[in-house]
């Protein structure tokens, strides 16, 4: 298909979104990620039955924590698509990138850099 999607998106492959832990999501933000999104299979179509539902809950947990700490829960999202939906994958990557650009950088990123420099 040779589809384009934003180059700032770094893909981390997991066998199932059920593998994505809350700590993975939080550590990404702690290390300065501006946004994180989890792309899972369509709801009801998980090969392992409930992996994407587990991920959905963890994304919601991460959002609540990010809101509490002042980073912003809107920086983490979950998308669902089928493995054959390449165009949708590219569209979600663009949508998430545009959404994060609108929000601006992770507020703690600059502060962590300043602390490391000092």
């Amino acid at each position: 298909m040779r589809l384009d999607y934003p180059t700032n998106v770094k893909i981390i492959r997991v066998p199932c979104t059920g593998k994505v832990d809350l700590l993975h999501l939080l550590h990404a933000f702690e290390k300065g990620a501006d946004g994180v999104y989890v792309v899972g299979c369509m709801e009801g179509e998980c090969h392992y039955n409930g992996g994407n539902f587990r991920a959905k809950k963890r994304v919601a947990q991460a959002a609540a924590i990010l809101d509490a700490v002042g980073v912003g829960g809107e920086r983490v999202r979950m998308y669902n698509l089928s493995s054959s939906e390449g165009p949708k994958f590219a569209a979600y990557a663009k949508e998430m990138t545009d959404h994060i650009r609108e929000l601006g950088p992770n507020p703690i990123k600059a502060k962590i850099k300043n602390q490391q420099a000092a």
């Binding site: 939080l26 702690e30 509490a68 700490v69 980073v71 502060k111």
Partner: peptide
Amino acid sequence: SALRMYFAN
């Protein structure tokens, strides 16, 4: 992790 982010912020 949450506290580290909170204090960094």
